[in-house]
Simulated assay, not measured.
Amino acid sequence: MSAQPLDPRRPSLAERRKSETRMEIARTAARLFAAHGTAEVTADQIAAESGVALRTFYRYARTKEDAVEPMLAAGAQRWLAEIAHLPHLPTPSDFESAAVRSLTLGDSPQDLEITRGLLQAMDSDPALRAIWHRINMEAERDLHRLLVELAGPQSDPIHLRLRAAGAAGAIRVALELWAAANGPAVGEGSPADLVKRCMRDLL
């Protein structure tokens, strides 16, 4: 009996373990930064609390601030994956639905609280703001590339750039407002609720 071929889209066990380690480091760094700020936290502390050697830490992050990137970027990656599965250029309703699904089906309550603390700490921490804005800019660029592919070569480049900037900006603003207001995880004032409101006001 022949063995079944491996699904090329499914990550290998080694890749999944690497992803889990990277995310565990990100959670630890985010929790420490939220509590103490980046200036008071060292890479050694993050590595030790993550249960990895410092050498291993630097395999996954160039700097201690970069360590939080996988956690902050996870939501944008889920949202972009939702958009990528559409057979047509997304409408405002498509943008909204994809954003709500990526938020509703994404982070655990614990991860959501860690993200809230990180976004609150960002107000007084330039290093964290730089990471957050870089992640959002990369998400906007990735979204723009997706829109160009979906719209085809005859599309209006200005229109697509503005759509990408508006949609990505709406999510960023919603999350920042939610964190600043200590909003709930679900219901009125939640990330999903605020994303819907921001999308409808903007798009």
Rank of each mutant, 00 (worst) to 15 (best):
M122E: 13
R62E: 13
T42Y: 04
D142I: 04
D201K: 14
R31T: 07
P191W: 03
A174D: 11
Q120D: 08
P92G: 10
D123V: 05
A43R: 04
A67E: 06
Q77C: 06
E69G: 11
L6P: 00
V52K: 00
V52F: 15
G37M: 05
S155Q: 09
Q110G: 06
A29P: 01
A99F: 01
A139Q: 09
N182C: 13
R59L: 15
R78P: 06
W79A: 03
A53E: 14
G106F: 13
V41Q: 07
A185T: 14
N182D: 15
V100P: 02
G187C: 03
T63R: 07
I135K: 07
I46S: 10
W178S: 03
R101A: 14
P109E: 10
M137Y: 09
A180P: 09
R116G: 08
A47C: 12
E188H: 10
L162D: 11
R17N: 14
R145H: 15
E15V: 05
R197N: 11
L89N: 09
M137H: 09
L89F: 02
P5A: 00
E138M: 14
D44T: 15
I83E: 06
G51D: 05
T56I: 10
A61F: 08
S124E: 12
P126Q: 02
A67M: 07
R145W: 12
L147R: 04
L54Q: 08
A139Y: 01
A98I: 03
V195I: 15
R161L: 03
Q4H: 00
R116C: 02
L146H: 05
L194K: 13
G106C: 14
S50D: 09
G187W: 08
M71H: 11
A73Q: 14
F95R: 00
R78A: 15
P191A: 12
S93G: 09
R10C: 06
P184Q: 07
F33H: 05
K18T: 07
A76W: 08
Q77L: 13
D111Q: 12
R22V: 03
D111P: 07
A43E: 05
D7H: 07
A43H: 07
R78V: 01
L103F: 10
S124W: 00
L160Y: 01
A81Q: 07
E113R: 08
T28Y: 03
M137E: 11
E140M: 11
T56C: 08
L89A: 12
A167V: 11
S97I: 13
E82C: 04
A185R: 12
A48E: 15
A35I: 02
R129I: 06
H88C: 06
R129D: 10
R101C: 10
W132F: 12
T56P: 11
L80R: 00
S2N: 01
L147N: 05
H159V: 02
A98Y: 04
Y60D: 08
M71D: 04
A151K: 04
R116Q: 10
A170H: 11
I171V: 12
L80I: 11
V195S: 08
P184M: 04
G183H: 13
A73D: 15
A26K: 05
A164C: 09
I171E: 01
E82V: 05
E140G: 06
H88N: 07
S97E: 13
L119M: 10
R10D: 08
K64G: 03
T56K: 05
L103R: 03
P11N: 05
E20L: 09
R197Y: 05
I25Y: 11
A130Y: 08
I25Q: 13
K64I: 14
E24W: 01
A76M: 06
